[in-house]
Design a protein around this nucleic acid. Structure first.
Lengths: 321, 321
DNA sequence: TTGTACGCGTTATCAC
DNA sequence: GTGATAACGCGTACAA
């Protein structure tokens, strides 16, 4: 690997001259500058990332942390992040898994976008206290180095519940997310509020995990207890798909015996039959907005906590009772 | 950010002693070692990644390069990579987009896994020549620092074509990938070979792009020319889905007028109706094997170019003629 | 206009 | 067992 030193030697100048030339400083003759640039190109010179970040204390890289790489959920989100970050001169890398927490700790990134429940609140606050700039998408955290950009979970959950109720459903199962999930908690709060306002509605909670298997398990329970048409609000689409998978192997029929609505509007929801009713929001905009906020924090500009709006997607998985 | 220097000061020892203690050298008293470790913990000390890679010339990070974050294609692949890399003491980060090429050039990673047509062969060979260790999943490249782990494209394409032919189809459209795609070229070679061996088969090539829109366009053309049942081999599932989307808006029926087979067995293929016939392979194993090869190159061990085997998935999107 | 010298945080090689 | 000290590659005041 050619370094600045090699160029200096070959050009017969000092390393500082080379540095100036490469950084376009006006302190160097156009002539020598051109010569140095030519030699740099010839030697395939690329500045070493480690050395530069060590000196400048910035890497121009942002890390996005996700619990896993699976599913159609994260694609648009990351696309949104990448777009605005590149525009601001940053690169994006995506990390997953508890091991990868090291990368955040070691200050490899100028900032991080967190949508990853495997981080604890304490960890993140600790990172922030040590000077890391964060934007969290899956919790609320109060710290000058942290901003949050969150879904309007309550509006979404209310929309879903009211849709079911408006269509005449009175027995409603709700499949929750994993213990401790902020999104799940928020959605459940709205669910319970809605149920309180509708005293004739019977609401049965089943604990889930936001994964397909959780939806299957819930489907199994519902099928076992089946005694007439019911509605189900799965707190995310992934679980709704799992429930489809299970129910399709029974005598029960989606959109007739079991009326189901999800949350997230992932790509698959559009293709399964009957199409899954769900709550939609722009994942791309979410990623984009979060990235904008992060850059603002890094640049020391004022930020406000933003919210992503949601809409109801009606579909054949829910019919009037 | 607490550095090794801060610890040294607080412990009243030199920085080298601290370094020894932190790296568990036996050359330091258990007593002082314990004291230093305690102070390190107290100060939230984390070694600085930039400084360490600058000195050790390794980062213990592997980069995976993809053309985009979209679709259900990459999830399992990345999961496979992550699993074996972590086991070997490396972390994985995922990069996408032409901007991110910088990260590779700047030696941020100890090695990279490439499945990204936005790199040219020359670029990659150039990187290899400069000492970067690469494993490519989407082309063949001959260089001591490069290994390739490829799909058995020819077997897959032959399986698909023979399946159609065995079921009596004689008019077969083939929708190709984008210009220059290695996978597309390999698959097309096998397609043409199969056609040559079956002189009564009429094969019509339509150029595609491996994206949904390409499948839609091809569907449009096929519908316009429609004059009786035809079979279609889409060189990947994504285009097959696009074709479904288009055809479903016409009077034509999948699995009756249009018999279609894809390649990749992405998640969606299992859920669309009729289920898509396709070519399957373990994406997880692919990622895992590629990672193993990369680590071997980095550690200077001998490698062989591996191949990923494929199987035929029969389904209702293809019926006998 | 160019060269010298130092610092960034870490590791490694020496003396002591 | 411990402590200076040089080196990694780059950036930048400051001196020449």
């Amino acid at each position: 690997m050619a370094s600045i030193k090699d160029i200096a030697k070959k050009a017969g100048v000092s390393i500082s001259t080379v540095s100036y030339a490469l950084n376009g400083s006006p302190k160097v003759t156009d002539e020598t500058c051109a010569r140095i640039l030519a030699i740099a190109k010839e030697l395939n010179y690329v500045p070493n990332a480690a050395a530069r970040s060590l000196k400048k204390k910035e890497s121009k890289i942002i890390g996005a942390f996700l619990p896993d790489f699976s599913g159609g959920f994260y694609g648009d989100l990351l696309q949104g992040m990448k777009g605005t970050l590149i525009q601001k001169g940053y690169d994006l890398v995506v990390c997953s898994g508890p091991q990868s927490h090291r990368l955040l700790a070691e200050k490899l990134f100028d900032g991080a976008l967190i949508l990853d429940h495997t981080f604890s609140d304490e960890q993140l606050l600790n990172f922030a206290e040590l000077g890391h700039r964060l934007v969290v998408l899956d919790r609320e955290l109060k710290h000058p180095n942290i901003n949050h950009v969150l879904l309007d979970n309550k509006a979404g959950a209310s929309l879903a519940m009211e849709y079911l109720i408006d269509l005449g459903h009175r027995k409603i199962y709700v499949v929750t997310g994993p213990e401790g999930s902020y999104d799940s908690k928020q959605r459940m709060a709205a669910v319970r509020q809605t149920v309180e306002r509708n005293s004739d509605v019977e609401c049965i909670e089943i604990s889930g995990d936001f994964n397909r298997t959780g939806g299957e398990r819930a489907g199994k329970q519902i099928a076992a207890e089946f005694a007439g048409p019911v509605a189900v609000f799965c707190l995310n689409d992934e679980m709704a798909i799992g429930m489809y998978d299970y129910i399709s192997e029974t005598d029960l029929e989606m959109g007739k015996d079991i009326h189901i609505i999800g949350f997230d509007n992932i790509e698959l929801s559009e293709y399964i039959r009957p199409r899954l009713a769900t709550i939609d929001y722009s994942k791309k905009k979410w990623g984009s907005l979060a990235s904008e906020q992060l850059i603002k924090i890094i640049e020391g500009k004022p930020v406000e906590n933003e919210r992503i709006y949601v809409t109801l997607v009606k579909a054949e998985s829910v019919k009037p009772v």
